[in-house]
Simulated assay, not measured.
Amino acid sequence: MDQNVLTRKQAMETLNVKDYRTLNKLIEAGLPVIHAGSYVRFSKSDISEFLEKHKERGGEVSCK
């Protein structure tokens, strides 16, 4: 698998998130997702951009 494309578990490790509910809330807050059939994948660069964007806004992500 391409090392720049991550599974849910790998994305959670990269984001330092402990459960899938939190990951889903980040997706709802705008974390980009790659859908490939029934698979969900994440781009490392998309995760980095998402974190930078929210870092610039004071680090807050609305996960209601």
Results as ranks from 00 to 15, higher is better:
Met1Leu: 01
Asp2Gln: 01
Gln3Asn: 02
Gln3Thr: 03
Asn4Leu: 10
Asn4Val: 01
Asn4Pro: 00
Val5Arg: 08
Leu6Phe: 14
Thr7Phe: 07
Thr7Tyr: 09
Thr7Pro: 05
Arg8Ser: 09
Arg8Met: 12
Lys9Trp: 07
Gln10Ile: 04
Gln10Trp: 01
Gln10Ala: 15
Ala11Phe: 07
Ala11Ser: 14
Ala11Val: 09
Met12Tyr: 12
Met12Asn: 08
Met12Arg: 00
Glu13Cys: 00
Glu13Pro: 03
Glu13Ala: 14
Glu13Gly: 10
Thr14Met: 15
Thr14Asn: 12
Thr14Arg: 15
Thr14Pro: 01
Asn16Thr: 12
Asn16Leu: 11
Val17Glu: 07
Lys18Ala: 06
Lys18Phe: 05
Asp19Asn: 14
Tyr20Glu: 02
Arg21Leu: 09
Arg21Trp: 05
Leu23Lys: 00
Leu23His: 04
Asn24His: 02
Lys25Val: 02
Lys25Gln: 13
Lys25Ala: 11
Ile27Met: 13
Glu28Asn: 10
Ala29Gln: 08
Ala29Trp: 02
Leu31Arg: 04
Leu31His: 00
Val33Arg: 00
Val33Trp: 03
Val33Ala: 00
Ile34Met: 09
Ile34Glu: 10
His35Val: 06
His35Trp: 01
His35Thr: 07
Ala36Ser: 10
Gly37Lys: 00
Gly37Asp: 09
Ser38Arg: 11
Ser38Glu: 09
Ser38Leu: 07
Ser38Val: 02
Ser38Phe: 06
Tyr39Ser: 12
Val40Met: 05
Arg41His: 08
Phe42His: 03
Phe42Pro: 06
Ser43Val: 02
Ser43Pro: 06
Ser45Thr: 12
Ser45Gly: 04
Ser45Ala: 14
Glu49Cys: 03
Glu49Val: 00
Glu49Asn: 09
Phe50Gly: 03
Phe50Cys: 08
Leu51Ser: 12
Lys53Trp: 13
Lys55Ser: 13
Lys55Thr: 10
Glu56Val: 03
Glu56Arg: 11
Glu56Asp: 14
Arg57Asp: 13
Arg57Phe: 12
Arg57Val: 12
Gly58Arg: 14
Gly58His: 12
Gly59Tyr: 08
Glu60Val: 13
Glu60Met: 11
Glu60Pro: 06
Val61Ala: 08
Val61Asn: 04
Val61Glu: 06
Ser62Gln: 14
Ser62Ala: 12
Cys63Tyr: 09
Lys64Ile: 08
